[in-house]
Computed example of a mutant assay.
Amino acid sequence: MPQQAWNSRRERQYEHIKKSQEERGTSEDRAEEIAARTVNKNRARAGESERASRTSLRGKSPQERGGHRSGKRLGPGGPTREQLYNEARQRNVHGRSKMTKNELAKALGRT
């Protein structure tokens, strides 16, 4: 999915991120999306794109952030109760419908 506006460095970066995501078990479509978003955000931060959102220019870069917004942790920004409930349903956790968010997290082994 390398784009016309990307230079060879950005194309290499895209391929590297995509390959890395696939090695982690991410589907090919999702890996392509993550790679493209990361490259585009880095381009915006470096001033290589014509337009950039405020969120692209502020805060940490995707590499510095290291997945802090990935929905893997509890607390603010973590998975919602619905996400935890769906995971509990997939794992066939009994009593899940009456559990709170924290109880679901504990039952799933997330603390």
Score class of each variant (00 low, 15 high):
residue 2 P to N: 12
residue 2 P to M: 13
residue 2 P to V: 15
residue 4 Q to A: 13
residue 5 A to V: 11
residue 7 N to D: 14
residue 8 S to K: 15
residue 8 S to A: 15
residue 8 S to R: 15
residue 11 E to M: 14
residue 14 Y to G: 05
residue 14 Y to V: 13
residue 17 I to A: 10
residue 18 K to E: 05
residue 18 K to Q: 13
residue 18 K to C: 09
residue 18 K to T: 02
residue 19 K to W: 12
residue 19 K to G: 12
residue 20 S to E: 09
residue 20 S to V: 09
residue 21 Q to M: 14
residue 21 Q to G: 06
residue 22 E to F: 02
residue 25 G to L: 10
residue 25 G to D: 05
residue 26 T to W: 12
residue 26 T to Q: 10
residue 27 S to P: 04
residue 27 S to T: 14
residue 28 E to M: 05
residue 28 E to A: 15
residue 28 E to G: 07
residue 29 D to Q: 10
residue 29 D to L: 03
residue 30 R to N: 13
residue 30 R to T: 06
residue 30 R to H: 11
residue 35 A to C: 04
residue 36 A to P: 00
residue 38 T to A: 11
residue 38 T to R: 04
residue 40 N to C: 02
residue 41 K to V: 10
residue 42 N to D: 14
residue 43 R to Y: 05
residue 44 A to H: 06
residue 45 R to L: 11
residue 46 A to Y: 10
residue 48 E to Q: 13
residue 48 E to K: 15
residue 49 S to N: 09
residue 50 E to H: 07
residue 50 E to F: 09
residue 50 E to A: 13
residue 51 R to Q: 10
residue 51 R to T: 04
residue 52 A to D: 01
residue 52 A to R: 07
residue 52 A to C: 01
residue 53 S to P: 00
residue 54 R to D: 11
residue 54 R to Q: 13
residue 55 T to R: 13
residue 56 S to E: 14
residue 56 S to T: 04
residue 57 L to R: 10
residue 57 L to K: 12
residue 57 L to Y: 03
residue 57 L to W: 02
residue 58 R to C: 05
residue 58 R to E: 06
residue 59 G to V: 06
residue 60 K to H: 10
residue 60 K to T: 08
residue 62 P to C: 07
residue 63 Q to W: 09
residue 64 E to Y: 12
residue 64 E to G: 03
residue 65 R to L: 13
residue 66 G to F: 04
residue 66 G to I: 06
residue 67 G to I: 07
residue 68 H to Y: 14
residue 69 R to E: 02
residue 70 S to W: 08
residue 71 G to D: 08
residue 72 K to V: 10
residue 73 R to K: 15
residue 76 P to T: 10
residue 76 P to H: 09
residue 77 G to F: 01
residue 78 G to L: 00
residue 80 T to R: 07
residue 81 R to Q: 10
residue 81 R to C: 01
residue 82 E to Q: 08
residue 82 E to V: 04
residue 82 E to Y: 04
residue 83 Q to P: 00
residue 83 Q to H: 08
residue 83 Q to V: 01
residue 85 Y to I: 00
residue 86 N to S: 12
residue 86 N to K: 14
residue 87 E to K: 06
residue 87 E to W: 05
residue 87 E to G: 03
residue 87 E to P: 01
residue 88 A to S: 06
residue 88 A to G: 06
residue 89 R to P: 00
residue 90 Q to V: 11
residue 90 Q to A: 14
residue 90 Q to H: 11
residue 93 V to W: 02
residue 95 G to I: 09
residue 95 G to N: 09
residue 96 R to M: 11
residue 96 R to S: 03
residue 97 S to V: 12
residue 97 S to Q: 14
residue 97 S to D: 15
residue 99 M to F: 05
residue 100 T to N: 01
residue 100 T to D: 01
residue 100 T to Q: 01
residue 101 K to L: 07
residue 102 N to H: 09
residue 103 E to L: 07
residue 103 E to I: 02
residue 105 A to D: 00
residue 106 K to H: 11
residue 107 A to L: 02
residue 107 A to M: 05
residue 108 L to F: 03
residue 109 G to P: 00
residue 110 R to P: 00
residue 111 T to A: 07
residue 111 T to S: 08
